[in-house]
Amino acid sequence: MLTLAIDTATEVLGLALLNQQQLVIEHNLHLPRQHSEKLLPLIESMFELTEFEVADLSGIGVTVGPGSFTGLRIGITTVKLLARIFKIPVKGVSSLELLAAAVEGEYLLPLFDARRKRVYTALYQRQLGKVAERQQAISASNNLIFNSRKAIIKPAGIEITKLPEILADYRQFKLTLLGEPKIAVKEVLTAAGFRVEFANLENDFPRAAVLARLAAQYLAMDQSDDIYQLKPAYLKQPQAEINWQQKYGKKTDLAGGN
């Protein structure tokens, strides 16, 4: 099992190679607006530095956002072609899940700034009980150690002021915040009576090695994605479409149009 991880969702360009349990190489480079120039040369140099060939890959993990659409499309296009040429499976992983995967805590609230006082977020819970046992067993048989987490609130774009309402059922638990804008979200939640803590800063960024482990885990459980359907989790319609709907949407509805 040789798994490649590619993360181009944020300003950090993440690349990692995982051989069974062994992390072979990992890059987490803060390179705003340079993913197009740097991604392919870095993949090439990664294989030059290690004793592996691109053709040795048995699976790939890629982040599907939330994040920069341009960055995501660069990563996903690369993955589509590698998977198509070498006929290997791919797993698309939420950037929110990637943030949550490396952090201790029972209830994890990873955040991405969606601008205009909104965030992209999801609530993850550490898996316990039967499901976790089964996953641990599969992981062990594939020589993987894994902390499984489940999204109990699915990724979505939300106004920060609406968070207390959406998280109302989890008020009695302590929530661990990651990503940005942490401080603004903490203010809103504590004002509403939630108990909130920040994750350890060292673990509070997307790490390619974690993505590689996550992907290897999913692929070991045969949870791969169709590369023809693989696309960013846009969570938002194109602005032109929103404007058009606002301008003409209602009229066409009345006219019985689309």
Partner: peptide, 11 residues
């Protein structure tokens, strides 16, 4: 372009 670059690298 990214698709072409990936093909070049892979092949």
């Amino acid at each position: 372009l990214t698709a072409a670059k990936t093909i070049a690298l892979a092949l």
